[in-house]
């Protein structure tokens, strides 16, 4: 491929290079440079995505002939209580994956960044660690901790709270919160690391200014910490809500959607429909709705952040 710079080829005709565009303006040749990435993206992300939208209008197992069914798969998601509950569970998981970790993170960040704590770097790493561990490993560990005869129940019995002991992951009331709290444990480190980094950029004089302006701790938080962490909060929200919505590994390993359908989530259903019961069309429709939900929630978050600035 010959990529002669533009001014040289132009130089043959004119004495001085043409000033048709401002310096730094995009040139058409730039597209050539992003072509490899575009090809990879189109081949491995965009084409399968379009194909899956296409498949979502069919019914079949993907091997024999597929039958066109229109929007029936989508109607099913809206009407079938199991499919619908998967999305409701996903929304509930957002509380555990994003809202609780970010709320605790904000509280700790606003306290921590002003006090000199010995070994802050150690705690930061320790709290961030769960986010680094493979979700499957985390799920295995917590499944063990929460098992009917696992460490948590043994501990409760040892301290005389045996009445509280319950088969956490087998209980219809507790299964989803239990899985959710594992998400809280994982995401909290991420939220805190992000928010602490952001809080360190806030000049301490701003807090002093609030105090001299007659404000207390709540005013400091509202007038300085919260606005100062706006971008970090948005990033944390986007990352954690996405993780909550597309959650698969932890559910798969810990509960497989059970007991009953108490912890069924969209990603798990996609997997189940596609590979367990071979309903390719239904799985594709589910996946499409999930993607739209993720994009929608993220748009909402960024829109709200822009509105409040």
């Amino acid at each position: 491929m010959s990529l002669a710079p533009v001014p040289v080829t132009a130089g043959g005709r004119r004495k001085s290079p043409p000033r048709s565009r401002a310096p730094g303006e995009p040139r058409r040749i730039g597209y050539l440079f992003i072509l490899p990435a575009v090809l990879v993206y189109a081949g491995f992300v965009f084409a399968p995505f379009l194909h899956s939208i296409y498949l979502s209008f069919f019914e079949g197992n993907g091997i024999t002939r597929m039958e066109f069914v229109g929007v029936a798969n989508y109607v099913d998601i809206a009407t079938n209580p199991v499919l619908r509950s998967a999305f409701i569970h996903a929304l509930e998981l957002i509380v555990f994956y994003s809202i609780i970790p970010i709320a605790i993170g904000l509280l700790l960040a606003s306290v921590l960044h002003r006090s000199r704590i010995r070994g802050v770097a150690f705690y930061r790493t320790a709290l961030f660690l769960p986010y680094v561990i493979a979700p499957t490993a985390i799920a295995v560990i917590w499944r063990w901790i929460l098992a009917p005869r696992g460490p948590l129940n043994s501990f409760l019995e040892a301290v005389g709270l045996g009445a509280l002991a319950t088969p956490w992951l087998g209980d219809f009331t507790w299964a989803l919160p239990s899985v959710g709290l594992v998400g809280t444990w994982v995401m909290f480190g991420l939220a805190l690391a992000l928010l602490l980094a952001g809080a360190q950029k806030i000049p301490l004089e701003l807090y002093e200014a609030v105090r001299l302006d007659g404000g207390g701790l709540w005013t400091e938080f509202r007038a300085v910490t919260l606005p100062g962490l706006r971008y970090e909060i948005v990033v944390a929200l986007v990352l954690t809500t996405t993780a909550a919505l597309r959650n698969f590994d932890i559910i798969y390993v810990m509960t497989s959607g059970g007991p009953g359908n108490a912890t069924v989530v969209p990603s798990y259903l996609v997997y189940q429909q596609a590979f367990k019961v071979a309903q390719i069309g239904a799985a594709a429709a589910m996946g499409t709705v999930l993607i739209l939900a993720i994009v929608g929630v993220n748009l909402l978050i960024t829109r709200m952040a822009r509105g409040s600035s």
Partner: peptide, 21 residues
């Protein structure tokens, strides 16, 4: 007496204005 109740006003070297206001 804590700073917020002293009723003095301070001009900081780097002004410490609230950036979002």
């Amino acid at each position: 007496v804590p700073a917020k109740d002293r009723d003095v006003a301070m001009v900081f070297q780097n002004y410490a204005l609230y950036p979002q206001m």
